[in-house]
Nucleic acid binder design. Structure first.
Lengths: 219, 219
DNA sequence: TACTGCTACTTTGTCGACAATTTTGCGCGA
DNA sequence: TCGCGCAAAATTGTCGACAAAGTAGCAGTA
């Protein structure tokens, strides 16, 4: 994952990253209360940095806060997941459209080679793929859109929430080979600079993921 | 404008709203530095509440911050405005789609009567419309989507930035009557529960606005 | 027993002071 | 005159303490 360009510099940064990790991965339970004093002793920092970290978590939609009452980790609901995928469909569709217009030939070539490496892994039977590989694929297209707002909303906000759902509701499941084909066609459209088609395919791709996840939630 | 459900409760809230207003309306110049000590004396609060306010402004994409250096108000560029409208096209298109599915009949009736009141004003020659009326129209559809993330991203983030561009680059211009027709057709599609068409019309509507603004920027 | 109101406690909000980092400006030497 | 380095000033980051709001528990009364 060529992901983590963000590296902590201040103490509040470190605390924020740590807290985000703990929340996303379930070390801090969904729906639980975040006590400032408690966290400040646990992480050995002052309440001021805890407060700043919590503020940023709120901006990421990972916690909700009430004035004079406190902050709680968001609760995960099927409806929430559906809503999240609706936003993803919209934004990542646009990202694919823009990527088809704005990615450099070199970036597209890289994307294709990434896809090839995935293909080998899938073919050799490794059911690896879904987590890291899928994230990496989508991440490159998002960044390839070259749209600052789009990139920020998706990578700073939506994606950590999606991962939280994936981890805590145990969404690692199949959809490997079919998803791979979908990825292939998206890259093909981007390579042809067909923005319209790239958007449509990406939206379908995410729509399918949503259906797959929805049916898994009900079982 | 049925907008301001958000009312300040804490001191940091008030400072945040005030600062946001000052930035959006240009009382604090785009690109200028936000000195914590300076602001704390100016608004007569401690640096802690200023810091919290700045953090929230950063989350709204109205200021950018560098560790150990400070925060600056974002600078307005033609490219930035284009990018903003790309995100709007994507998200508000989805909002219209979801509104067609999720708005109650009562909400739709309200939307239609809002449109009628606009029609009267436009017909009676008042070039009123564009600012408050336009915002109100879009706001209702966004809320009508019933998608929490969508609503938050648009009303807490994007919209203040759009308004900042409008105010500071003097975008109040025409496009009144044509925009009204577009609004009418969108409402018609929502009323027919035609989600597909509602999304398409909304995307076109925003696309046209973008072109109109772009040409105005170049003149 | 159930409800109301008070009190004590816990938690969040705000403040001023200190620490750490960055920026500024001066002096020195080439 | 220009560039380098060091020191001083200014700015941001962090901390502990106090203020204010909310919560829980107890006592008293109907």
């Amino acid at each position: 994952m060529t992901f983590f360009t963000e590296q902590p510099v201040t103490s509040a940064d470190k605390t924020f990253f740590q807290l985000r990790k703990d929340i996303v991965e379930g070390a801090i339970l969904a729906g639980s209360k975040l006590s400032e004093t408690e966290l400040s002793t646990k992480y050995a920092v002052s309440r001021a940095v805890i407060r700043e970290a919590i503020n940023r978590l709120e901006a990421s939609h990972l916690v909700e806060r009430k004035a004079n009452v406190g902050a709680r980790v968001v609760t995960l609901t099927p409806e929430g997941l559906i809503e999240l995928y609706q936003v993803r469909e919209s934004l990542e569709g646009m990202a694919a459209r823009l990527a088809a217009q704005n990615m450099t030939d070199h970036e597209i070539a890289d994307l294709q080679s990434l896809l090839n490496s995935h293909f080998e892994k899938v073919q050799s039977g490794q059911s690896y793929y879904q987590e890291a590989g899928d994230v990496d694929f989508h991440y490159r297209i998002i960044v390839g859109s070259k749209n600052k707002h789009l990139i920020s909303i998706l990578t700073d906000g939506i994606y950590h929430l999606v991962r939280m759902y994936r981890v805590q509701l145990g969404m690692s499941g199949p959809r490997v080979t079919t998803a791979f084909d979908e990825h292939k066609h998206i890259v093909q459209a981007i390579c042809n600079r067909d923005a319209e088609l790239a958007e449509m395919l990406m939206r379908r791709h995410i729509l399918y993921s949503k259906s797959s996840i929805k049916s898994k939630l009900l079982s």
